[in-house]
Design a protein around this nucleic acid. Sequence first.
RNA 1: GGAAGGGUCGCAUAGCGGUCUAGUGCGCGGCUUUGGAAAAGCCGUAAAGGAGAAAUCCUUUCGUGGGUUCAAAUCCCACCCCUUCCGCCA
Length: 412
Amino acid sequence: MLDIKFIRQNSELVREAIRKKYIDLDLNRLLDVDEKRLELLKEIEGLRAKQNKLAGEIAGLKGEERDAKIGESKNIKKNLQEKEGEYKKIEEEFNGLMLKVPNIPDPSVPEGKDESFNQEIRKWGEKPTFDFPAKDYLNIMEQNGWLDLERGVKVSGFRGYFLKGKAALLSMAIWKFVVDELVKKGFEPVLAPSLARKENFVGTGWLPSGEKEIYQMDDMGLVGTSEVSMMGYHKDEILKEEELPKKYVAFSPCFRKEAGAYGKDTKGILRVHEFYKVEQVILCKADHQESVKWHEELTKNAEELNQKLGLHYRAVICSTGETGLGQVKKYDIETWIPSENKYRETHSSSYFHDFQTRRLNIRYRAKDGELYFAHSLNNTAIATPRILIAIIEQRQQKDGTFKLPEILEKYL
RNA sequence: GGAAGGGUCGCAUAGCGGUCUAGUGCGCGGCUUUGGAAAAGCCGUAAAGGAGAAAUCCUUUCGUGGGUUCAAAUCCCACCCCUUCCGCCA
């Protein structure tokens, strides 16, 4: 959510953002509705003021005088009810439109409609080469009894899977390793709920636009990332400036319907409905430079983890079309998948300024005594099982196993 | 799932149709007093929106949403949440 005052004063900037992010929204309509809304609001407030004044007078009166004032107040009531009905409709439209207004992408974000416009900024390590016929992870995992897709589908349906044996242990080792590393960097470890009220999805920007992506029941939904529950954690709170930044490393199962991806990555465990993720979430002071600083830090953290796991990857700046509604800027870390001869997204690092915290009403009292909406950021620390693909394939050995990253040895 | 009680200003509590411009205590801030402090006394103590150059004024907010009424913290309905007890249960 942007501040309506900001939208009024910077309509051209917002218009540009709508264009760059390929969003279907008529800004003029919003500005018109806003103007009407304010006009009506003034009228209503004036009527209420009169009504309040009369109510005070009536209390001290008797007889005819009293009846006259009551009559007057009745008239105002009728008028007020009409105007309030009108206002409700306008406000509803206003709120609906406001939810569609995107955050302004940073000037450093490359313009373009899809990932082909993403801009590579870094690479680490080298594509592994093998002096034997390399296999894909499916082969390796099934051969070792680490993955059961057939029974996964029997139990869960399409995209279902069971991880077994060393793959199950490896997953848990990775989670613990990653959490340990981030705790060392001052992040507070959290086991976050996967089941969350819808307001948290709206607050983070996952709803209404992601309607088809989320498993929903009644007023709850299953989170696609613990970002949703972690941002809800401080909803409606006023923090102290001294407490910032709040740094969390949260673990949770994550659920995604993958609607619109029916044809994509249909085999294996690259794209699944249910996975596990360790997520970095930060709330910081309302300052662009702060946001940028922490954004780089979150990204660096994720890259370091990949490096310690010995994984070749690259980092890209996502194009405007790939940058979410509330995001100012997003880096993806794409890890090399040998069998696909491609880099695939394994981490996603973004900052939002106060877009999310405004919706969630997360503020802090600054040292100057003023209240500000905090800034929010998040980035994947590690997501399983997707990262297993990279580890198993990049580090595979001739005998059909893979070389365990040294750093994980103590966790297995 | 059943039963009862409850959600009021940072915390605790009062209020149960019009004098609520929500009282009181604690906390917090300022001032007086003091060599300094404590204590005491006095004053102040929220958020959002709107008008205004400003002083200031207006509106909204007593869990949320509806309703009754000229008027709702107060009455009615629904929902959410909390506490206690019973049942079920990893």
